[in-house]
């Protein structure tokens, strides 16, 4: 049986496609404006916004997919994470202005405002530490918010750290490390068992041991 695979566009695409090609699925170098394509071996690829991959997989519209762990933490979708594919590494961190010296242990203000795209992860992090916060959901350029007084802290993804440095922000704490994951729909795992296990073995040769 041929599988339908959700593939993230954007930053993870090139490595995801390379990994699929190494697994014998000829994913295009560049999906361009295409939404889907069917490869020579009959696999159907869906080119998706990264944050949409979990929904496609949970609903069974895709049997399986490749998605960053950071997206999974926020989506709370019911999908099975079968393999850590290792690429697309980045860190979810708490960061602040250097001058506030939170990274050197200066106490947080009593009324703490935190800006993030990753509101669920941010909420969970501060709740675990019993720190009351007001979370401000932002959709981009989160690093601006502490500079203009919108937030005391930000929770954001960091790959190289250049963005933080450019704005004189520093890491206060690391919440988690994210990499690309291979996820499947729990029911499709059963109805397409042979094909899924086969693809898992080709994507991540160490997975079954």
């Amino acid at each position: 049986m041929s599988l339908t695979v959700g593939v993230p566009k954007g930053a993870l695409y090139d490595e995801a496609a390379a990994r699929l090609r190494a697994a014998g699925i000829d994913a295009p170098e560049d999906p361009g404006r295409r939404l889907t394509c069917t490869t020579a071996d009959g696999t159907r690829l869906l080119f998706l916004r990264p944050t949409d991959v979990p929904a496609y997989v949970e609903f069974g519209a895709a049997d399986c997919g490749i998605v960053g762990a950071d997206v999974l933490w926020e989506s709370e979708r019911n999908v099975s994470e079968l393999a850590d594919l290792g690429f697309g590494a980045c860190r979810l961190v708490v960061a602040a202005r250097r001058v506030d010296r939170y990274h050197e242990g200066a106490p947080f203000p009593t009324f703490l405002r935190v800006a993030s795209k990753f509101t669920k992860s941010a909420e969970a992090y501060f709740a675990e530490r019993d720190i009351p916060v007001q979370i401000v959901k932002l959709h981009g350029s989160v690093e601006l918010s502490p500079l203009v007084g919108l937030a005391d802290l930000i929770v954001d993804l960091v790959a190289t750290g250049n963005t933080l440095r450019e704005h004189d922000l520093v890491v206060v704490d690391e919440i988690a490390r994210s990499t690309a994951r291979f996820v499947v729909n729990p029911v499709r795992f059963r109805s397409a068992y042979g094909a899924i296990v086969d693809l898992l073995g080709r994507l991540d040769p160490g997975a079954a041991s």
Binding site: A69, N78, S80, E81, L82, A83, D84, R181, V184, P186, F189, A207, A208, S209
Partner: peptide, 26 residues
Amino acid sequence: ATRNLVSLRATLDAAGRASAAPVLVE
């Protein structure tokens, strides 16, 4: 139960019980 092999391995690694991974993954 959720067939989350990534968290299974991470849990065992963190507990110093990585040797249990092959059996539980199987």
